[in-house]
């Protein structure tokens, strides 16, 4: 097991390094740099010589490979550089914005999971019309665009019904609509995978055996089907959680929330390379951590995935 873990950790680190490198190369390939954008043609009226000096001060003139190694070294020691736009360390920008986004993502993911499980259970246990309803929901959910859903939710719940205030909302109120907006499209594929897996497991011979033991439909669902349907759903959930971070950017913008979303948007507009580099590496780290977690969790649900224990006959 520990050997497997070491192997997976090594792979995760490689992925991170690759993400860092690709991001670095792409960002370097952008025409111009942040120094030029900030100072050139600005009202400060700096001369070309002064700008060149600034470039040297920011290290923008060094050969690319040197910059690469330098930045990599800094990242490894926890220094993500300085935002050229804001003039503060990227680390403190992140510290300021990350928690809000993480909270949003985690809440949305939790809601999506609940929604998916509820739909899946309904699809197997409810009355015939409820089953049909639960089965038709995922494709409806997946078709709804995030930004449209956000705007519609504000329209209905805030402006027409006045249930959730948009102006000066409570912290919890502020999150309700964004969380729903994010959760709905994520829940769709989760529910779909879960329902499909449950259907498949219900057709397995061991379910017939369980029923021949006298088990009721609900007993079979909870004791046999649920646990067998879970592992593939978990894999799917890992992928979706990564997607959720991307969704958070759009949602934060639509609802005007502070967070990584706004930070990313600004950094892109200003070619704030240091910030972008940090965000890319951070997203990659999130992806890698989650897929690693999923990998380590799966054997707990399915013993066949654990390394072959001794005593096999």
């Amino acid at each position: 097991m520990s050997r497997h873990l070491a192997q997976r950790l090594g792979q995760a680190l490689l992925v991170l390094l690759a993400a860092f490198t690709v991001a670095f190369v792409l960002l370097q390939a952008l025409p111009g740099d942040a120094v030029l954008i900030k100072f050139l043609g600005s009202e400060m009226g700096l001369t070309a010589e002064q700008i060149a000096e600034l470039r040297i001060a920011y290290g923008a003139d060094a050969p690319v490979w040197q910059q690469y190694l330098h930045t990599l070294g800094n990242f490894l020691s926890g220094d993500f550089g300085t935002s050229i736009r804001a003039g503060v360390p990227v680390a403190s920008l992140l510290a300021e914005n990350l928690p809000a986004t993480l909270l949003l993502a985690a809440l949305a993911f939790g809601t999506a999971s609940l929604l998916a499980v509820a739909l899946a259970v309904l699809s197997q246990l409810g009355f015939a019309w409820a089953r049909a309803f639960a089965r038709s929901m995922p494709s409806f959910f997946v078709a709804v665009p995030v930004f449209w859903l956000g705007i519609m939710l504000i329209q209905v719940f805030s402006f027409q019904l006045g249930l959730v205030s948009v102006i000066a909302p409570e912290p919890w109120e502020e999150l309700i609509l964004p969380v729903l907006t994010l959760a709905v499209p994520i829940s769709a594929p989760l529910a779909q995978v879960l329902i499909r897996n449950m259907d498949q497991v219900f057709g397995e011979p061991f379910v017939a055996v369980a029923r021949a033991k006298g088990a009721t439909h609900a007993w079979v669902l909870w004791r046999h089907v649920a646990r067998n349907a879970l592992p593939p759903t978990l894999t799917m959930a890992g992928v979706l959680f990564g997607e959720l971070l991307g969704g958070a950017v759009v949602t934060e913008t639509v609802f005007g929330l502070a967070g990584l979303g706004g930070m990313t948007q600004q950094a892109v507009a200003n070619q704030d390379v240091a910030v972008l580099q940090a965000i890319v590496v951070l997203s990659a780290a999130a992806f890698v951590t989650i897929s690693l977690a999923v990998d380590l969790l799966l054997p707990l649900f399915d013993p066949r995935l654990a390394n072959r224990p001794a005593g096999a006959a």
């Binding site: 397995e204 011979p205 061991f206 017939a208 055996v209 369980a210 021949a212 004791r223 046999h224 646990r227 067998n228 649900f301 399915d302 013993p303 066949r304």
Partner: peptide, 12 residues
Amino acid sequence: PQDPTTSLNPVR
């Protein structure tokens, strides 16, 4: 049942 290889729940 007929096929013992698929007639037991693999995760229990």
